[in-house]
Structures are given as structure tokens and as C-alpha cells.
Simulated scan of single mutants.
Amino acid sequence: MDVTEKLWAELEEVIDPEVGVNIVDLGLVYDIAVDEENNVTVTMTLTIPECPLRDMIVSNVEAKAKSIPGVGNVHVNLVFEPRWSPARMNDRAREEIRNRRAHV
């Protein structure tokens, strides 16, 4: 598995605390770029620009990326265009959300 694949896998462990689903399945991660020196840029968004847990999510993304051996610097590039919408979620995220609502 190359560094980019490892990064995608690690970011599946970062949970959006308000939704309870990982940021990859939610479609919050738009791109992961790794340069020739293994420096990483994660381009992502949040469900809303005013997300009160912004710093925690970004910190968790940075920590997961830095946990991969050989990764150099990590930069999280937060963007709000294109704007996130529920259409970006994959089927696994939709199913998790449905299951959570059914148990409330």
C-alpha cells in the first residue's frame, strides 16, 4: 500500500463528532496530495463552515497523517468551494446515519 492509500485508510478513522461518521465516508475529504518528500496536503471541507469542532477535526487529521511512517510535513487545506452537501456521502455513511436515527 502506498502512502496515499495509507492516508485514505487512516482518515477513515477520523470521526465527525456531530454526525458520528468518518470524514471519508461523509465526503469531506476532497483530495490527498503527497509530494516527492512525502509531505502531505489534505484538501477537505466541513459540513458547515462555522463548524464548532473545526480545530479538533483538523488536529485529528494531522495526527492520523503524521502517524504513518515516513510522512513529512502535513498541511490541512480547508476549503468551502465546492460546498459540502449530503450528496457527497457514500452508501456506508448513509446506512450508518440511518442506523443511528433508528436507535434514537
Rank of each mutant, 00 (worst) to 15 (best):
A102C: 04
R83D: 13
W84N: 09
N39M: 08
K64W: 05
N99G: 07
F80R: 00
A33I: 07
T4A: 08
A93N: 05
N77K: 14
E62S: 09
V29I: 15
E18Q: 11
G70L: 05
A9W: 02
P49S: 15
E10I: 08
K66Q: 15
N39W: 13
R101Y: 11
L11Q: 03
G72I: 08
K66F: 08
R54D: 02
R94T: 12
R100Q: 14
E5C: 06
E13W: 10
R98W: 09
I57C: 01
Y30V: 10
V71F: 04
E62G: 04
N22F: 05
V3N: 05
L26S: 06
E13C: 10
M89V: 12
L7K: 00
S59R: 12
L78A: 11
M44D: 04
R94D: 06
P52K: 10
A102T: 06
A33Q: 14
N22Y: 06
A33Y: 15
K64S: 14
S59V: 11
M44H: 01
K6S: 09
V3E: 06
L28H: 05
K6P: 00
V24Y: 02
N99S: 12
R88S: 15
F80C: 05
Y30E: 06
N77W: 08
H75K: 13
I57M: 11
V29R: 00
A63L: 09
I15T: 08
E12M: 11
Y30D: 05
T41L: 03
M89N: 06
D91Y: 08
D25E: 03
V29T: 00
R88C: 15
E96R: 11
V61S: 01
T43N: 07
M89W: 06
I23G: 01
E13K: 09
L11E: 00
L11N: 03
L78P: 01
L28V: 03
N38W: 10
V42H: 05
